[in-house]
Amino acid sequence: MLKENLKEVQENILKACEKSGRNPEDVTLIAVSKTKPVPMLQEIYDENIRDFGENKVQELVEKYDELPQDIKWHMIGHLQRNKVKYIVDKVCLIHSVDSYRLAEEINIQAKKKNITVPILVEVNIAEESSKFGVHAEDAIALVEQIAQLENVRIKGLMTIAPFVENPEDNRQYFRNIRQLSVDIAAKNIDNVSMNVLSMGMTGDYMVAIEEGATMVRVGTGIFGERNYNK
């Protein structure tokens, strides 16, 4: 079942790339494995998927120890400052940085381990009160502030679009965040690149790709519905 799900997602990514004239190699599929048991992750790993996304620090740390070491772990959930130390040397990218204080803590922990940590700035592009992320009009100032931290590197932006029945309803948000990334890139800020656009989930990743996503975060589409009662 998982293999079929994965194959369908991969085919959809190809279709979206074809439609928008993009190279499929420019889009990374992140298998969002939150609440899913290790054997399911192993099954997807065995299909040559290496990028996995987790929402909770504890879950990421546990799975990190149980699964192959060549997995690239992405922290995609809201990150509390007191938990940064547990994952700072285990993740390839932190997607959910939405404040200077969080970036500052990542910088402190990165220095302790003598590493540089790649991050994305999370933008609440639809300005939903239920979601984390900096508002679009504050994003450039935040990027400029974080850029001065020595052991953090901003690689791009991340957003979680609204939950919608029709993916087309989110096209405007994906377009807006893509434009924001272009505006930030044009400023040529030291230590900042805008090569990564992490947007699009199970319900809308094809539209996100058409609008420039370089990373899509697909959980339910691969692993099925989540069980929060475990």
Rank of each mutant, 00 (worst) to 15 (best):
L79T: 07
A161W: 03
S96V: 00
I94F: 04
V88M: 01
D138S: 09
S181K: 13
F132V: 06
K111A: 14
F163Y: 14
E165G: 11
M206V: 01
K72A: 09
D204G: 09
P167M: 08
I108F: 14
I115H: 01
H95S: 03
E210Q: 14
A141Y: 06
I94L: 10
Y86T: 05
K85H: 14
I140D: 13
N114Y: 00
N166R: 13
V207M: 13
K90S: 03
E122S: 10
Q80P: 04
I87Y: 08
A136C: 10
A208E: 12
K112I: 00
P68W: 04
D190S: 15
L102C: 06
E137N: 12
C92T: 13
V207P: 14
E211K: 13
G212R: 02
D204M: 10
A208N: 08
N191I: 12
N188D: 14
L197D: 06
N107K: 12
I146D: 07
A139W: 00
N188M: 10
R175C: 06
I76H: 05
I87A: 03
R178H: 03
A147L: 05
A185F: 06
P68E: 05
R101G: 03
A213C: 09
G203E: 08
D183Q: 02
I115V: 06
D204V: 12
V164E: 15
S99G: 13
K131A: 04
V84E: 07
F174K: 09
S181I: 03
I94C: 11
F174C: 04
N195Y: 05
Q179F: 00
E210P: 13
V97T: 11
Q69P: 07
P68D: 05
V207K: 13
N114S: 12
E137Y: 05
N170Y: 11
L197T: 09
Y205V: 06
D98A: 11
P162Q: 03
L102Y: 10
K83I: 12
R101L: 10
K85S: 11
V192H: 10
I119H: 01
I125E: 07
P118T: 01
K112N: 01
A141L: 09
I154E: 05
M201G: 08
I94K: 05
R101Y: 07
K155S: 10
R153F: 07
E144P: 02
P162R: 03
K111L: 12
A185M: 06
V182E: 14
P68Y: 02
A139H: 02
F163W: 15
F163D: 15
S193M: 10
N166M: 11
Q145N: 12
E168L: 13
G77M: 00
A126K: 04
K83V: 13
P162M: 01
S99D: 10
E128S: 08
I71M: 04
K85W: 02
M199N: 11
C92W: 06
L197I: 07
I71C: 04
E66K: 15
Y205P: 09
A185L: 11
Q109D: 07
K111D: 11
I108M: 08
D190Q: 15
R153W: 07
Y86K: 15
A103L: 01
K85D: 09
V117Y: 00
V207T: 15
M158N: 10
S181Q: 14
D138C: 00
G203H: 04
I115Q: 01
R175G: 03
F163G: 10
E150C: 07
V97Q: 07
E150I: 09
Y86E: 15
A147P: 08
